[in-house]
Design a protein around this nucleic acid. Structure first.
Lengths: 352, 352
DNA sequence: CTGAAAGCGCTTACAG
DNA sequence: CTGAAAGCGCTTACAG
């Protein structure tokens, strides 16, 4: 049996693998067909390698005939660089995050990287186990877009020599690159705008998530309003979603001292607040109530909302992530803060 | 120099790699520290392998100390199965697709797979090149959620023994598994509902995308209306997005014979139509105009729209994809059609 | 420019 | 249960 098995070794590949179907061609086979060495085949697929036009042509012809595709797993093993970058993200279905994911994956792809997505949603089974995948697959870099950042995993990434970029977090682990948004400035602007427009009974609506971004927006808004001598009612609860905005807006407007302006820490929340105001309390916007959001999600521009908000600098974030993650260039890790420009629409009265 | 280089071979790993920083521990090193063979280390990380509790304990201790993580690239090379499944998707930022991506990645992850995302958006640089990645990384399977399906690439996947699952396509390549939605039934239901509610001047709004799903919905709606003796005005244009709905709705309502009901082939389009009707033409919904959409995106449930629509069977699609892609089970390729249940809300008057 | 050889980090019969 | 050995498919000095 043993001797026999050895005899049919060439057929072995066919009997293995999940589908027991056809298999991938190897560089060896291409070399044989092209009548060159295995090294030559490798060189034909390595930009900049020294190979004669003639040899390259023979290799390419053979490769095309066999449907050969370089095995990046094997290549990654040798080069100690896989081309994989892991994106860790929770709440992918959300407007802001899906846009960021879209933008980021596109940019990374254009830079020649390949994107692995690790869904870190609460309900995503074993999150810590999933995160370990970034190590298992030897990703060159991992970027955390949202979700709980397991410190231990982050440290492992760093220890293993991966590049780690953190988006909108405030736990500045040494060795990581941090890309963030100027939440404080935006929140201050929001307070100023509202006050200048004549609104006096301010409110802030947020979720119970307590992420660094949301907390920063809240605190800065409260501070700015406080400095201007204005009091702010705070409502925080639920997930960072439309429903929470609806609920918060309803609670606020049903109270004894209903606000005439609210800064919702997120557009999703703002849409909920707006719907509560208009549909449940018949308030006219912006005459009777002004609302400001944050993110500039697509829906903020829809006619039913036409929400004044701050635009996430998605392009900047994507561009910088690519830069931080690209080969060669070794940017200094540290923190980079981008502005979130105000987008004027009609949910707030214009000040004097 | 040569001899010298050999002497310091143990240090070699440190001087290589992108960051020239610390590197990954190998099974070899773990074996040495644990005082066992390389094989033993491998067995300790292979479920079901025969290894004594004692040996396993020693290996695990050593692995923990060194921060060892099995290299799945090398493992994939040997096992001829990588655990990678590629998701090819365009328009990730869109509500429906981002939800599908969220759901799918979560399910796949729970099934022990790892997800690679290939952004197939028009503006994503070299799409065909990107798609080739699924072959380069030897993904076990690839699933096409949306976007242009390069037939040649699809064929290559099949030829290489990958499993290929196509979502909502009508080009049933032999050897592929197809998961689809019963667009025809939903569209017929839409026509019936509208007519039964007393609407008489029907319109259909679609984009210029011409994907199989949209075409199927359009054709079935027209057929059903025709059978009932109703005429339908068709507006098609732009991308499958809110703006097109707004534009189409505006054009339709500004015409000589404005419709009193519209079936928008997508919720995004429907929201645009609704906004055109309400904000630009002051139509009351559903009294003066009825609107039905398709997808049941989150916004369809928001108070400003409260859109009657058909729900995408996202869970079914995700569950079946996992089943088709999971190890072991070899489901018969073919086509499976899921129902898209009607979600009643207030954008259509209730019939008799 | 080119090929033979070593080696990346694993898994898996094989033989004990 | 365990180790030595072969091999997965590549890349990259090395020597011509």
């Amino acid at each position: 049996m043993h001797a026999h098995a050895r005899t049919i070794v060439t057929l072995t590949r066919t009997t293995r693998g999940p589908t027991a179907g056809p298999a991938f061609a190897s560089a060896q086979e291409v070399a044989r067909l092209a009548g060159v060495s295995r090294s030559a085949v490798s060189r034909a697929f390595t930009p900049g390698a020294s190979i004669s036009p003639d040899t390259r042509a023979k290799v390419e012809a053979a490769a095309a005939e066999l449907g050969y595709h370089v095995n990046h797993l094997a290549r990654g093993l040798m080069r100690q660089r896989t081309g994989i970058v892991c994106l860790i993200v929770a709440d992918i279905h959300t407007p802001y995050l899906s846009r960021l994911l879209d933008c980021l994956s596109r940019s990374l792809q254009e830079a020649g990287k390949v994107v692995m997505v690790l869904n870190a949603g609460r309900a995503s089974g074993n999150v810590e186990g999933a995160l370990r995948q970034t190590l298992n697959y030897r990703a060159d870099a991992t970027v955390v877009l949202s979700g709980t950042p397991y410190r231990s995993i982050a440290q492992s990434c760093l220890d293993s020599g991966q590049r780690l970029v953190l988006l909108n977090r405030d736990d500045h682990l040494p060795g990581t690159a941090n890309l963030s948004v100027d939440h404080a400035r935006a929140a201050r602007t929001a307070a100023t705008l509202l006050l200048r427009a004549g609104y006096r009974r301010l409110a802030l609506v947020s979720s119970a998530a307590g992420t660094p971004s949301l907390t920063a927006r809240r605190d800065s808004f409260l501070a700015a309003a406080g400095q201007a001598g204005a009091r702010v009612v705070v409502w925080e609860g639920g997930a960072t979603a439309y429903e929470s905005g609806l609920e918060g807006g309803t609670a606020l407007l049903a109270s004894d001292d209903p606000p005439d302006a609210v800064f919702a820490v997120t557009d999703l929340l703002a849409c909920g607040v707006l719907d509560a105001a208009r549909h449940r309390f018949r308030r006219r916007v912006p005459a009777e109530i002004g609302v400001i959001g944050f993110d500039d999600i697509e829906q903020a521009g829809w006619a039913s909302y036409d929400l004044t908000t701050f635009a996430q600098p998605v392009r900047d974030i994507a561009d910088w992530t690519v830069r931080l993650v690209a080969d060669g260039e070794v940017e200094e890790p540290g923190t980079r803060v981008f502005e979130a420009p105000l987008v004027w629409r009609s949910s707030v009265a214009r000040g004097a």
